[in-house]
Design a protein around this nucleic acid. Sequence first.
DNA 1: TATGCGTAGT
Length: 701
Amino acid sequence: MAAAGAAKVTAAAAATAVFRSNQELTRLARSGQLAAARRLFDSMPRRNTVTYNAMLSALARNGRIDEARALFDGMPRRNAVSWNAMIAAFSDHGRVADARSLFDEMPNRDDFSWTLMVSCYARAGELEIARDVLDRMPGDKCAACYNAMISGYAKNGRFDDAVKLLKEMPTPDLVSWNSALAGLTQSGQMVRAGQFFDEMVEKDLVSWNLMLEGFVRAGDLDGASTFFARIESPNVVSWVTLLNGYCRAGKIDDARELFDKMPERNIVAWNVMLEGYVRLSRMEEACNLFEEMPDKNSISWTSIVSGLVRAGKLQEAKDLLDQMPFNCVAAKTALMHGYLQRKMVGEARQIFDGIEVRDTVCWNTMLSGYVQCGMLEEAMLLFQRMPNTDTVSWNTMIAGYAQGGQMRKAVGIFKKMNRRNTVSWNSVISGFVQNGLFVDALHHFMLMRRDTKRADWSTYASCLSACANLAALQVGRQFHSLLVRSGHINDSFAGNALISTYAKCGRILEAKQIFDEMIVKDIVSWNSLIDGYALNGHGTEAISVFLEMKANNIRPDEVTLVGILSACSRAGFIDEGLKYFNSMEKEYSLKPVAEHYACMADMLGRAGRLNEAFELVQGMQIQPNAGVWGALLGACRLHKNDELARLAAEKLFELEPRKTSNYVLLSNISAEAGKWDEAEKTRASIKEKGVHKPPGLAGSS
DNA sequence: TATGCGTAGT
């Protein structure tokens, strides 16, 4: 008897212990402490179904869906909560099909299960299927299930359907009304939202906060402040919403005043204030606030680190990261990004290697760092090692190979992609253009339309550039009308590309017309028109556009001066050209770069002032590039100066050893001067140096 | 003590 009594006591004590551990496990799960939750779970001598369910949701919350599934499959007993938690895990990560098959297998579905499925489809944008699930739900439908559907309609812009269902359902609750209201406030329809809010049968603080957030989102700070003042007893969410409004409007000092007035500050409030300072690069205040924060989570750390990185304080960011008490991938990725922008690949890689659990953003950052540094082999190795790739990863590789001149590899990656988006198409199309394969670019535009992917300004800019280079006026005109039809005609990008296209096709009047019709002209628009006149030999017009530009208070940049100098060069305006060139630094604070020298060499050379041109090149502060020597060589041919030609050509051979046309040009110059031996020698050196053809555009390396 | 629908911060 006594033994039985003792056993009963022991069993009760054990049950209490499990109960207590479960409470702790739940707490850990909710605060995102997965590692601690796992340790506790593993150390528990006895577990019940609640224990497993808590662990399951801890895994799901941290995105460990497949581990959660393994735990689910291995559970000794499963109840409805276990099934629902697993369905929710799939639903939260967009795995609609997995959620559905579990729902179909589930023995006894309850209200939670049906609500989860409605919500799952609604969030995936599958509103008709969601509605079908709701309609099939047997017996009395719970309010939550209706609410999931109302929310789905509202978030997808179907406000009328949301209200219709709200009126149809037997017992709408606060969430029903707020779900419908959220549809209006979150899509910026504040007038309708205000009417709906006034007519609401039931409302609570969430309703008021939804309205407040709507004003902030619409950028109506006065409306927000006035509305806030009407809230009877605002809670932390109300305060934070208004605080965020001030921060986003850049009124950081007003924000700080509000922050100091807050009756209660939680971690979200601190983070909003911190991000406000960081956004305005007020890093000293940001750092002070960060020090004062009673709690810091991964958002706080990411904010401060990316702020320091943006301010160029990489060492401070790194020192701070070394003190981070937990592993925050986003903060470390921000530092990696900073290193990579400065081409400090080794430092970035060190951080990367030190991260135990990386997300796809982290992998993509390292990947694009390698690409930007031209380290394509390392990029490919990393790409192949990635546990998960997304469209960004693939697009990064495509753009990398395209910029590296290896179009064959770029296209190879592109063809293997499962889901191509507009950026993927743009990367190959602009790659073809950059590598001079204009016909391929236009061909891929046709394929893109067949793939029903939307073209954007970048697509059109690349295609127009292809047309310009092919001088394909008719195709260019077709793109022009496509731009009008797709509504992109008012983008300054598109307009600028059109100006260049018409100008390069010799239709300078049409180029000017586009320019005149453009609503928003930027510096590129002016430069494109000046370039266009230059290209067509209209020196006077180019200069008059330049003067008009200055009269409009647009500051000329380096590109403008290239245009002006080449206009003077082609029109033979030597004195004008020299005047502009010599006044670059004084009048426009622009240091001449190689392109300017090339224009000058061309200008003086064409006019037969070869020695002056040569002296100018020799006196350059910077290293002359191939363009400069090329201009000189061209002028030498024009004026039959084979001695200077040889000198310029030798420099060109150093800079562009594989470019056959340089050798051919020099050989012709020698031949024209009657120096047949020299000509033959130059031709022979083509074979000698192993120069066969221009560098392979298709990148067969 | 574990699972669903509406509000704030990357």
